[in-house]
Design a protein around this nucleic acid. Structure first.
Lengths: 235, 235
DNA sequence: CGGGTTACTGAACGATCGTTCGTTCAGATC
DNA sequence: GATCTGAACGAACGATCGTTCAGTAACCCG
């Protein structure tokens, strides 16, 4: 039913027997944000798991897959994580943390105009999803493979970020700077356009990271009927 | 990193031991479009598989899970499908078919004004995702679990639907009816807001299906700077 | 009434799953 | 130099995976 109406990356290319599975992401190499996890074997495990979980899914990845890619025995992973579940939980937690930090950081250098605040949030939202597409996909798709206990830390962070967005929207509407057809659906729309970035955007393509963020800011302002010069019409 | 900035449905509720897995969808019951598959055991299998694949994922669902829910032996499924893969492939194909049919049907009763055409497409896109959320999720998330061969029929349909959207956008821009910051990103945005519907929308909530579609049409027109009355400003 | 097709059972197959265990070994500490 | 610690190995655990297969009951068509 869906057809996201975006390209899909099924490897129907020249490659071998062609009975390969599709790859979920356009970006090749999975990158974990530099300072989010200290160097060492634990970080290597998380990086490899990020690559696998993003492309094959949590249930589609075996501990032996990870071990082979790490050039380790499967049992060696258990010196660093108590279970496969905990590896995913840590990725999901780190992902939420990185995202929430980006949103908070974007707001601190900004005046208290709701329009400027929305621009900052949308820009950060887009940049994070475009810069760390694997992490974004794992956080958004694979969190459902976690038990409630293991997902809880991430969900707590998520609730805060949601509150941040809704607060700005609320205030913008109250001040008459925004005009939305429906609050919940519009908030979902602002979120959605960022969340889907990993599935189509290629940083090496025509659109630079900055330009992508600019486009998303523009589209968001249009959805809110918000105009940046405080007096009148037109961007 | 992501935080879709929408609610998540992790069952942290009262339930038992609480070490349950999260459920991906807000809607409880999985519905397969009535006329898309004839009645019989084959349809029952697809319906149960739709429920499981949407909530637990393809790799998170075993053939025994399906058999138990169907009150059958695992081996009985192989009288109807040659493999577990083929069950998913059929769901993905049907889903794409339903979506593409909805898009095509939406266009036939409409004049050749790009604005009216975009409204029809966006409305159909939203309605299909809101009406059949399980199918939408399986098509968009689990297609990556298929081999290139099995995904091919669905991908062919997807390419057509993409062409439909891009064609209307292209023509609208050429005629000066649309003004977009970036064609690829805007097309992706139009698609994204529909694709994310299953993750937050509840048909039983405040927003009716029709109202949801109206909101999406409005948001889309804003993103395109398209105004419905052919002469001037304002919706 | 008899022969064939279809849908299903129940048992079993080899493979792979996540995880545990006893052991080894390098490097830090005393 | 003795002791301890942490990381990693290699083998193995029971469980579960997708799938196969012989057998059976029910049905259709002649």
């Amino acid at each position: 039913m869906p057809i996201p109406l975006t390209e899909t990356n099924v490897r129907s290319d020249n490659r071998a027997m062609s009975s390969l599975r599709a790859s979920r992401l356009r970006a090749a190499k999975a990158i974990l944000p530099p300072s989010s996890v200290p160097d060492g074997t634990r970080r290597r495990i998380l990086e490899v798991a990020l690559q696998f979980f993003a492309n094959e899914g949590f249930h589609g990845t075996s501990v032996r897959d990870l071990a082979k890619a790490l050039d380790l025995q499967p049992s060696a992973l258990y010196a660093h994580f108590p279970s496969k579940d905990h590896v995913l939980a840590e990725l999901v937690r780190v992902g939420h943390e990185v995202h929430a930090s980006a949103l908070r950081a974007a707001l601190i250098g900004v005046c208290d105009d709701p329009i400027e605040q929305i621009c900052a949030l949308v820009r950060a939202h887009a940049l994070v999803h475009a810069t760390y597409p694997h992490l974004a996909v794992v956080v958004n798709e694979e969190i459902y493979a976690l038990t409630a206990e293991l997902a809880a830390p991430a969900l707590a962070i998520r609730a805060q970020s949601m509150a941040l967005l809704h607060g700005v929207l609320e205030r913008g509407v109250a001040m008459g700077r925004f005009s939305l057809p429906d609050k919940a659906a519009t908030a979902a729309a602002l979120s959605a356009i960022g969340v889907r970035i990993p599935y189509w955007y290629e940083p090496s393509g025509a659109l630079s990271l900055d330009a992508l963020a600019d486009v998303h800011v523009e589209l968001s302002l249009r959805m809110l009927r918000a105009y940046r010069s405080p007096d009148g019409k037109k961007v």
